[in-house]
Design a protein around this nucleic acid. Structure first.
Lengths: 315, 315
DNA sequence: TTGTATGCGTTATCAG
DNA sequence: CTGATAACGCATACAA
């Protein structure tokens, strides 16, 4: 491995001069700079980030926490983060927490160990270990009071869900609740709930049980009682649709189903899923930019993204 | 941030003693060790990986390269890698290459800069920049001669595809080719091709064009000419199924479709997709283990995973 | 069993 | 404009 020391010998100047030349910091004669650059090229010099980090105690690595990368909503976000990061010379370390506070803690510690410059987290225990993190954190799609966050307008998303179901002729609606520990789910739930009440529509709520899987409470009897279903996300809607198909429930004739997220696959399920699109990629991008600005002491305001109804064949 | 120096002051011993105590390397009296541990706990000591890495020039970070994390096949692999890595105290940096040799090169350089311990890559230009990487590389689902690799038995997978289509009554088959630069696609293609020929079945080949999107060559006329379709992966099968649905082609009555990968969503598309399952998660796990062993000079043999037919309603 | 000294590669300070 | 030199936090060979 070639170091600046090698270059300094090669050119016949001191390491500090090489360092300055390479970083264009401080004064270096054009002549020397040219030589240094040439030598660096010739010797195949690659700067050692580790050493730089140790010295400056600021690395170019950003920790990213998601519940589970296997849920296709997150890869989109991650791409958004990563593309923006790459462009600015940063890299990301990803941690899957599985909503497990222990894992979360472990990863946060790891991020500290690696002198990460910041953390972007789409999963955060309210009273989680992030509390005593000394590196900046941007919350993604999660709002916890007085922390920086980037999210979509989920309250509106929930309203859109309910409105559309009503518009498309549903008269008895089942509102399926998502995890109540995440603001993004709580908001969309409240949005839908408010709209349902406001319209004086008959509806019931399927609470998010301890099993953490609403499908566990779905059966043929329940399905037949409603003609409209509001799902907390597309993944659940897929399974509901599947259940209905297998039980001979006609969608959307007998039952209308609306999801949330607009995953890429929602076009391909049967029937294709009406849903709420949230701009995952852009959320990721914005989160990264916000983090970088925050680090520099800039605090932007607009960190709320609009959502949008995508009408397909399930309603 | 508390360092071993702080601990050494606190306890009243030298930093080297603290270091030894913390790492259980070399002799330390039980008494002192206890004190050091207590102090570390009390002061909330977190070892600085950067410093350790600089010193030993071996980090606990592993670079992972995939074409695009947005393709749901890769998150599964990544989880496999990450879970195995976490367990052994390693972390991963992910890079999306989009099959772009430039990006690939950039990431490999990054991995070097960060003193990564190794690279696991599911995307590799044959004559790519990895050639002159001095850190160990394990190829995932890609075989390039005389490099370490972990993959599924795609030749068999291709055979299974063809066999099953024939068994299910197809008489005129369209074999859709995947990217010919990846061994995993080439193998499954050859497997299917061999079986088709061997069975004397009538078939055609839809070559992988420069557009890189076989759907571009699909139209109603072509669809009607065959009653069996072999897809290089599930994602393409989804789109094909969708096209057929929209054009009123009955599946599987008029056309049988088989995919490859068995993504989670293949159960939910319409009709549910018959496909070949490859153990993505296990591939990831194995890749990590192989890398770790390789680093230690151990070279294992069995790095070939079996694949399996998953019969659903599209055939 | 413990402490001292050195180095990992880089940047930053300060004197020349 | 340039060059010593210290420092970042840790691990280790060697001395005590």
């Amino acid at each position: 491995m070639t170091t600046i020391k090698d270059i300094s010998k090669h050119v016949g100047v001191s390491v500090s001069t090489v360092s300055r030349a390479l970083n264009s910091s401080g004064y270096v004669s054009p002549e020397v700079k040219r030589k240094v650059m040439a030598a660096a090229e010739e010797l195949g010099y690659i700067p050692n980030e580790t050493a730089r980090t140790l010295n400056t105690s600021i690395s170019k690595v950003i920790g990213v926490l998601v519940p589970d990368i296997t849920n296709p909503f997150f890869p989109k976000i991650i791409r958004g983060i990563e593309d923006a990061a790459l462009e600015k010379g940063y890299r990301i370390i990803i941690g899957n927490t599985d909503h497990d506070a222990e894992k979360e803690k472990k990863y946060v510690e790891m991020f500290h160990q690696n002198n990460c410059l910041g953390i972007i987290s789409a999963t955060w225990s309210i009273d989680g270990p992030g509390a005593n993190s000394r590196i900046p954190i941007v919350l993604l799609d999660r709002v916890v009071d007085d922390s920086i966050s980037v999210q979509a307008d989920h309250y509106k998303g929930g309203m859109l869900q309910a409105e559309h179901l009503i518009d498309s002729g549903a008269t008895k609606i089942l509102l399926i609740q998502g995890p109540d520990t995440y603001s993004s789910f709580v908001d969309r739930y409240n949005g839908a709930l408010g709209t349902l009440k406001h319209n004086n529509i008959e509806f019931s709520i399927l609470e998010y049980g301890p099993s953490a899987d609403p499908m566990g409470n779905i059966n043929d009897g329940i399905i037949r009682k409603y003609d409209g279903f509001i799902c907390p996300n597309d993944l659940l809607a897929y399974r509901l649709l599947n259940f209905m198909y297998e039980n001979g429930v006609e969608v959307p004739a007998e039952a209308r189903v609306i999801g949330y997220d607009d995953l890429e696959f929602s076009k391909y399920v049967y029937p294709s899923l009406t849903t709420i699109r949230q701009p995952a990629y852009e959320l990721g991008e914005k989160a990264l930019k916000t983090l970088l600005e925050y680090k520099d002491g800039i605090v932007t305001d607009k960190r709320n993204f609009d959502v949008q109804l995508i009408k397909r064949n399930s309603t």
